[in-house]
Design a protein around this nucleic acid. Structure first.
Lengths: 208, 208
DNA sequence: TATCTGAGATGACATTTGTCATTATCATTA
DNA sequence: TAATGATAATGACAAATGTCATCTCAGATA
């Protein structure tokens, strides 16, 4: 199995090479030290798997990988990263990467490379613990920073259920006019125009 | 590395055993033929990895796995399945499983087992192609069955962006009154009361 | 050809909605 | 005690919204 390594830190790149070459079924076809190099080497060497750092000077790993996949979608991309970074995980997934593991777990790199080469997808264990949170995120919205009170929060949730002012006023034991005033206040705090925009805001920003 | 196999089809279980025992670093500690057996054998054998079928008579793989994880969260669960089933994938992920691959890809099973044993997460390649869709699902809602036309569909999406009738009419090159009529029609088709409920419906049922 | 149909438009109408100024209460605080 | 501020309520008002009956018109259909 032919592997291309891309990392702008020569020490890391060297270490990865040593680890992978110790496996008798893995051959390190080349080592790139930045994104551009990775793209051109991938095109000439046609490795089975490209093991890439995400953070590199110049063209980063994500960009390089998507260029590689554009031309050779049979090459599997395995990202190595130092941090847990939600944004990168999402980008990598949507881009069609085959794996995303932490450098700290380099001991499991060979098996990850084999699994990826075999057409499977691999995530570092620590990353998976974050996946459910990524899927059903909730309540992370900071009402306070907008100066929104608990009552107003209630109101927002009722709007997001499609209730009218009258219905809300009954549920909250308030006058309908009061609810209208609260609504007005909430809308201006969030810089929105009407209750429908508030409902959209709720589903897009508060409980995505 | 100790592995427990659980599959209610003896043929499949046997085949898996053969495949895994051909690897000199993998030892098949036991073979369970249903969920209950898997739970008790996991408790007594304490394997590193449990390779489990999802569909089994009686207790299914998901239930069995969550029982195993409750007691021994260091045991990694690798699910084998015949089908691509969104619901199972989600359940498996949320449950804390370490892998989910197709039986058809049994050739890559050994590397998957090693990767999982090493603390990584593995998904079968065909499954990954569905992951982005699972994240930003869209368009799976059946507008037709409600008799909703393409134009009406557009309108719904614009309402879900918080646009007013006037803004929608400009975007669609229609009279504002026409938009109001379309709105009225859509609301009655979906049995809703106003545009805010329509926006809520959109985020809850159409693009959850 | 005559008819039917559906998309688009209009105008009238009752409601709902959001804004604003004002007032009333009540608890806290200076 | 008096001032303050938060909470709740009113009334007035303009704008937006949803419903309905009706009209036009082009294209399909008999």
């Amino acid at each position: 199995m032919k592997v291309l390594i891309a990392d702008d830190d020569p020490l890391v790149a060297g270490a990865l090479k040593v680890i992978l070459e110790a496996q008798n079924d893995i051959e390190v076809a080349g080592v790139a030290s930045n994104g551009e190099e990775a793209v051109s080497m991938a095109a000439s060497l046609l490795p089975d798997v490209a093991v890439m750092d995400i953070r590199m000077d110049g063209m980063n790993g994500i960009e390089a990988a998507s260029l590689i996949l554009k031309e050779h979608k049979e090459i599997k991309i395995l990202f190595l990263t130092t941090f847990l970074d939600d944004e990168y995980i999402n980008q990598a997934l949507n881009m069609g990467a085959s794996g995303y593991i932490l450098k700290q777990d380099s001991g499991t790199l060979p098996s990850a490379v084999r699994a990826v080469g075999g057409g499977q997808i691999v995530f570092g264990g620590r990353i998976v613990k974050k996946l459910p949170d990524l899927l059903n995120r909730k309540e992370q919205f900071d009402y306070d920073s907008y100066g929104i009170s608990d009552k107003e929060k209630e109101l927002i949730e009722m709007v997001a259920e499609g209730l009218s002012n009258k219905e809300i006023s009954e549920k909250m034991f308030l006058g309908e006019g009061t609810v209208r005033n609260m609504m007005s206040s909430v809308l201006s705090k969030l810089d929105l125009r009407d209750r429908t925009q508030l409902a959209c805001f709720y589903y897009q920003k508060i409980k995505p």
